[in-house]
Design a protein around this nucleic acid. Sequence first.
DNA 1: TAGATTGTTAATCGATTAACAATC
DNA 2: TAGATTGTTAATCGATTAACAATC
Lengths: 214, 214
Amino acid sequence: MAKDAKISNVVIKRLPRYRRYLQELQKKGVEKISSNEFSSLIGYTASQIRQDLNNFGRFGQQGYGYNVDELYYEISSILGLNQKHKMIIVGAGNLGQAICNYTEYYKSGFPVEAIFEINPKLIGMTISNIMVLDYEEMVEYVEKNDIDIGIICTTMDAAQEVADRLSFAGVKGIWNFAPVDIEVPGKVALENVHLSDSLHSLAYHMSKKKKENK
Amino acid sequence: MAKDAKISNVVIKRLPRYRRYLQELQKKGVEKISSNEFSSLIGYTASQIRQDLNNFGRFGQQGYGYNVDELYYEISSILGLNQKHKMIIVGAGNLGQAICNYTEYYKSGFPVEAIFEINPKLIGMTISNIMVLDYEEMVEYVEKNDIDIGIICTTMDAAQEVADRLSFAGVKGIWNFAPVDIEVPGKVALENVHLSDSLHSLAYHMSKKKKENK
DNA sequence: TAGATTGTTAATCGATTAACAATC
DNA sequence: TAGATTGTTAATCGATTAACAATC
């Protein structure tokens, strides 16, 4: 409630990483960590760590550092991970099936409730205990079951139509795996995972290193 | 060969996006595009587009703009997409299987040659015509078959050991899907896809929008 | 209290945008 | 040639790093 400025997206993108390292520290039973120790672990400067955290509050203590458990809790809370996010997947192809299982694995608060498909051959199947339902029923399902997140695992041609329908149905966020940039209303959060873009930037770095070694 | 300064990674990350939009333009039969027209399409400023491209060469023509075909070719070339990149997947779990099929779909120069597994039950199977081989044979296979890219689809515990072995075997790049930060030698390119981080930043934006609407 | 380490302000660095001369 | 639009330099903006006073 106190601090409420617009926080840069580069900061947000670092938060899950902080959280992952704190989780590791917790596992190891580490109780406290200074920004300097954290720096040599995570690879950001101590200054940046302190700056980042101070966007959200004063979590440390002078002369002591940060309490690992507390900071982990705070970051989880900032990210909104202390509440459940019900998800559905659209598209029961290979990627949709994989995400279904993958997020099962990471089901810490992100349950997959159903998968929607347009292909009649797949409708009625179950994938790791998740029902594959008819795409036509999606809007009704989202409304009735308070679905928070729609995961788009369709072809690029279908992606925008699916996004429109998900937004209309009232999801709060869309996780897009289709290799295309989609448009969503301002009230809907959007996160893209462009796997081919990622692979292509890997290819760039590979060919650059190749040249360097010549 | 002319321009050879160190190019910022934020620029590299935009290149695959430029390429995607140029591909779309090609499909539509568009012949030329000005930085201004491109700007309103892709959402970057015209200035940024020109700056970005001029890191690599002079691809435009004053008074005309950019030739779509030519620019598409140039960017593909910069990314190293005009050569084949042989890949293997490590880990035949759900994610490995999905990536296998997915990159099949995007097989434009990135063929998956084999999948490696430690679980004897899976060894010997085929996944969309790709053999699942014994992880113990991986190093030899990479050397003999000139594999360029190793895709890590293992658990986080195994990821670093796999990365070490891939690097030793001589891959040029590693595409890491395990939810952990791995270390690689300087000569190996590394690209991470941290799906859980992506999901968590989506959760942040969702809870932020929720607060705004209150 | 003295030592350590944060929170925060100030300085630097890098990336984006604006402006315009060069040129097709 | 005149108009359009690039390539590139200069100005601005934002993000990172450095420094240090506040404080546990």
